[in-house]
Simulated assay, not measured.
Amino acid sequence: MGLQELWFILIAVLFIGYFVLEGFDFGVGMLMPVLGRSKNGSADNDTRRRVVLNTIGPVWDGNEVWLLTAGGALFAAFPEWYATLFSGFYLPLLLILVALIVRVCAIEYRGKIDDATWRSRWDWGIILGSWVPAVLWGVAFANIVRGVAIDENRQVVSGFFDLLNPYALLGGATTAIVFALHGAVFIALKTADEVHEDAVKLASRLSIPAVVIAGAFVLWTQLAYGKGWTWILVGIAAAALLGVVALTAVAREGWAFVLTTVAVIGAVVLLFASLYPNVMPSTISDDYSLTIYNASSSPYTLKVMTWAAAFMTPVVLIYQGWTYWVFRKRISTAHIPPSIGLPIKTS
């Protein structure tokens, strides 16, 4: 295995980590309007929403680091891929970035002022800041696998609306429904009392459409772009989602979360395996396609990066694993203290 192959695999691993960890973060934000609604009236809505949000409170910002690392690795290891991707996908990637910024601000600011209107507005920031990237990441990666119009200058000459083709839209629907399911199972795993019960029920309801939509997408990917051995990945992802259907029906959220994780991993590996050895196929001519060989940095650069990754990666993994261990216990509405935000000024 050469350094180009190694770094292609490492970038795939970084995106796997991002989609597994940030995937349930998106799911939690997407489901706030549903699981944050109390049966006892609006007075308890904020408490429930704080329970839902606190499931990711200690870890969401650390999960985002996987995207920063993946972007940095992409820039350093495959600069031509990075340049073509970010110029050709400028608008969807900008929308993702803006949505992530809004979500960060909303999570940080919603509790600063003790006012229902203030919190409601920031809640919408969390919700939209979760839905937009959850959909657009699927659209973006589906287009990367499908290929876009890249000319001889390695420039994407197609427009934004060319990215909204049926395969890409199905990819966006897949990431949205799978992340929502992943988030519902995570909330069920991390909560107690009525929030836990509602999360289990919601996860059970989401599991069946997730099987249908994600199954259609991975099958289309395999038939159109996959390789012979990648049928194994299709089987793994499908079996994992079917297992989630069974496990959520009997409220086994721990194993269900393991299987939603396996499903995400299987789907991402399928996308990268279908792409290899290309990194951005051209629909104009195969001669214009970017591959791991014509888009990579120099061997010396890749060698230096490999040594840096060998030293730093274990440290990051150990630290993040320790964080999840420290905050492993369930939370409930009984654990939520009264709001301590500043009172809103009336004059």
Rank of each mutant, 00 (worst) to 15 (best):
Ser347Asn: 13
Lys303Ile: 06
Val211Asp: 06
Tyr300Gln: 14
Val185Asp: 06
Arg50Lys: 10
Leu95Lys: 02
Ser347Ala: 15
Ala99Glu: 03
Trp131Phe: 13
Pro33Ile: 04
Val245Pro: 05
Tyr319Gly: 13
Cys105Ser: 11
Ile292Met: 08
Lys190Asn: 04
Trp66Leu: 08
Ala176Gly: 10
Ile265Gln: 07
Ser42Glu: 10
Ala249Ile: 07
Ser298Arg: 06
Ile144Lys: 04
Gly159Leu: 00
Arg48Gln: 06
Leu270Ala: 11
Leu181Asp: 08
Gly111Cys: 04
Val234Ala: 10
Ala256Ile: 09
Val13Leu: 15
Ile340Lys: 12
Val145Ser: 05
Asn143Ile: 04
Asn143Lys: 03
Gly111Pro: 04
Gly228Ser: 14
Gly27Cys: 05
Leu68Asn: 10
Ile150Trp: 03
Pro281Thr: 04
Ala216Arg: 06
Ala239Cys: 15
Thr261Asn: 08
Val268Gln: 09
Gly215Lys: 05
Gly72His: 14
Arg48Gly: 00
Gly57Val: 02
Ala267Met: 14
Thr175Pro: 05
Leu6Thr: 15
Glu108Ile: 07
Leu206Val: 07
Ala116Gly: 07
Val34Trp: 00
Val264Met: 15
Trp255Pro: 13
Trp118Glu: 10
Val268Glu: 07
Glu22Ala: 15
Met1Ser: 13
Ser285Pro: 02
Val234Gln: 05
Ser120Gly: 14
Tyr225Thr: 01
Ile16Trp: 11
Trp81Ala: 08
Gly172Ile: 07
Leu10Glu: 14
Ile16Lys: 13
Met305Pro: 04
Leu31Gln: 02
Thr301Cys: 03
Asn63Phe: 02
Gly138Ile: 06
